[in-house]
Amino acid sequence: MPTPTPSSTSARSLLCCACLAALLASGLARAEKADRNKPVNISSERGGRLDVVNQRTEFNGNVILSKGSMLLKAERMDVRETSDGYHQAYASGETGKPVQFRQARDVAGEAIEGTADQLEYDSRSDTVRFVGNAVVRRVRGDAVADEITGALIVYDNRSEVFSVDGGLASPHPSGRVRVVLMPRAASAAEGSAAPAASAPLPLQTSPTLQTSPRKPS
């Protein structure tokens, strides 16, 4: 996809993110810390290919990758292990079947969910890149607390900071970035699966990123 250039769309994206940052609270609850030390499990319907020498696996057909509470679903997935034991996953969907992501947070009953045309996960940096028609939500029980949509969303698991940009691959025809923030009291009441003592903590965004997806080498 084309790399965005300064335009009214990108200006609106920056303004949107600036306004959002001003609304969000400073407190953060991190993603499930225990996931970092869990093994990676992969399954698929149509099998794949394992390259032992290069520590690379390719899977096709309803591929499911899990790592602790993290769950990643895609039609195609390329997973690599680096020499120092970290994993990189490149996942892609198909028309009508986007890549799906979910991971629990260290707040009872809360999780991060997202969909996109492509997804890149890097366990070293603990980041997830949602590329193309990206939608990411913070859910509390069955209720959506926050929602971000754009052409590209980068989620940092460690800090729980989101970077978002608009463009032609945004779910919105105009290419705009869109953020929906539910009132805290409303989201706490709707998310009855979590204890009342754990107040919902909003997400943070940062508008510094590139929209061109990285390609496996």
Rank of each mutant, 00 (worst) to 15 (best):
L71G: 11
D78H: 12
A11C: 02
L20G: 14
E45L: 05
K67P: 02
C19D: 12
A31G: 13
A18H: 10
V53K: 13
L28N: 10
A25H: 11
P6I: 09
Y90T: 00
R76W: 12
P6Y: 15
C16A: 10
E94D: 10
G47K: 08
R36V: 13
S69T: 15
D78P: 03
C16D: 13
N54R: 10
G85L: 02
L24I: 15
E75L: 01
T95D: 11
R30K: 14
E45G: 06
S69A: 05
G96E: 01
Q55F: 01
N37W: 03
A34W: 03
T95H: 06
R49F: 04
R49G: 07
R76C: 06
R80Q: 07
A34P: 01
R12D: 15
V79L: 00
S10G: 04
R49T: 09
G47M: 03
H87L: 12
L20P: 05
G96A: 05
T95P: 10
V99L: 02
P98N: 04
C17K: 03
A21L: 03
N60A: 06
V52P: 08
R49C: 03
A11Y: 13
K73I: 09
S8M: 09
T5G: 15
A31C: 14
P98T: 05
S7M: 03
S92C: 05
A25P: 08
G48C: 04
I64R: 14
L20E: 11
S92K: 09
T5M: 11
R46M: 14
E45R: 04
A31K: 00
T57A: 14
K73S: 08
S26P: 10
S26G: 12
L50Q: 12
A18C: 07
K38D: 14
E81I: 07
S66E: 14
M77D: 00
A11T: 15
T82M: 00
Q55I: 08
G48P: 13
L28T: 14
